[in-house]
């Protein structure tokens, strides 16, 4: 089967990436079965085609030979055999799909919120993070919804994908086979940052997840404010639109922001002090800096006061050279 690019084990092959969940193996088996069927039929048709073209190519002084214009038994055969095969593929595909449709009752549940252009994971204790950390020794169920447009949650290594739709919840589950980091993509087109709407699943070895969750939930108390702010900057999606290095992206950079003069769309000028930053986080549409679009979602109810304070401390730590703002 080498020519089909099939590789056993979890290493990943020519066709499919590493298979890292309990649900991946049955999907892969079906994939390779269809691949084998396809190769056989393709070889048959193209082989015959090439054979006929060569064998019956036009030659001087030789016309077509008499042959029937139809043959009922032959035509029935080549209709019924493919029909039986595709019904088999259908049944197999449906069975695997249904086996993977229902999450086990003991699944660990994480809430997922999609927004342009980041994934936020909310753990049962209220902690929010931008990387999905999960225990490696039990199934995980994601309950997902979107704040704005439709997104889609895709983990290739787990062979799972589900649309994330505003106004409703969709679910997805998996059970990882071994600890490690796995890539997450958004696969429903959602605008400018669609291809950067990436995330990771970190599968912890037994016991590791609980320890991580405890540390992560406590960062405001254990870290200096600016450092905690930087964690929040990365984990709450700010980083998707606001750079640290002075380059304007979808939103203004955070470098040198605090204390700088800002020119608004309306033409007014104001100083970006703490209250302005706070307002911009909670009421993003209230003041839009000239040159940017009003696309930021509100963080009202999603960031606590001390978190905003930590973020402002982080921004202050990014103070740029005097005069380079604007």
């Amino acid at each position: 089967m080498g020519f089909l690019g099939i590789q056993g084990g979890g290493g990943g092959g020519f066709w499919l990436p590493r298979a890292a969940s309990t649900g991946a193996a049955p999907v892969d088996a079906l994939f390779y079965f269809i691949l084998a069927i396809s190769v056989v039929f393709f070889a048959l048709i193209v082989g015959l085609m090439i054979f006929f073209v060569v064998r019956y190519r036009r030659r001087a002084g030789q016309g077509p030979q008499p042959s029937p214009a139809h043959n009922t038994p032959l035509e029935i055969t080549w209709s019924v055999i493919p029909l039986a095969i595709v019904i088999g593929i259908f049944a197999w595909g449906f069975k695997v799909f249904m086996d993977l449709a229902t999450p086990p009752a003991n699944a660990y549940e994480v809430q997922v919120t999609a927004q342009k252009w980041s994934w936020l994971y909310t753990y049962p204790n209220g902690h929010v993070d931008d990387v999905l950390h999960v225990p490696g020794d039990r199934p995980v169920k994601l309950v997902m919804t979107s704040e704005d447009v439709i997104h889609s949650y895709f983990v290739p290594a787990f062979r799972v994908k589900r649309d994330v739709v505003p106004g409703r919840y969709s679910t997805l589950w998996f059970e990882a086979l071994e600890p490690g980091e796995y890539q997450v993509y958004c696969t429903e087109y959602c605008g400018t940052g669609h291809s950067d709407m990436l995330s990771k699943v970190v599968v912890h070895p037994p016991g590791g997840f609980e320890k991580w969750l405890e540390d992560a939930s406590n960062l405001l108390n254990t870290l200096p404010p600016a450092e905690a702010g930087e964690r929040l900057y990365r984990s709450r999606g700010c980083i998707q639109c606001h750079s640290m290095d002075g380059a304007a992206a979808i939103g203004p950079t955070f470098r040198g922001l605090v204390g700088s003069q800002r020119v608004m769309r309306s033409g007014t000028r104001l100083v970006a002090d703490e209250n302005y930053i706070r307002e911009s986080i909670l009421e993003p549409q209230a003041q839009i800096v000239a040159g940017f679009e009003p696309v930021m979602p509100t963080y009202k109810g999603r960031l606590k006061d001390e978190e905003i304070t930590a973020l402002i401390a982080f921004m202050k730590s990014l103070a740029g050279e005097k005069g380079e703002e604007q």
Partner: peptide
């Protein structure tokens, strides 16, 4: 959810609609 200091996390809140 109206209070700024709410502990309700984004996904725990009902999405719009």
């Amino acid at each position: 959810a109206a209070g700024d200091s709410s502990v309700i996390a984004p996904a725990a809140r009902g999405p719009a609609g």
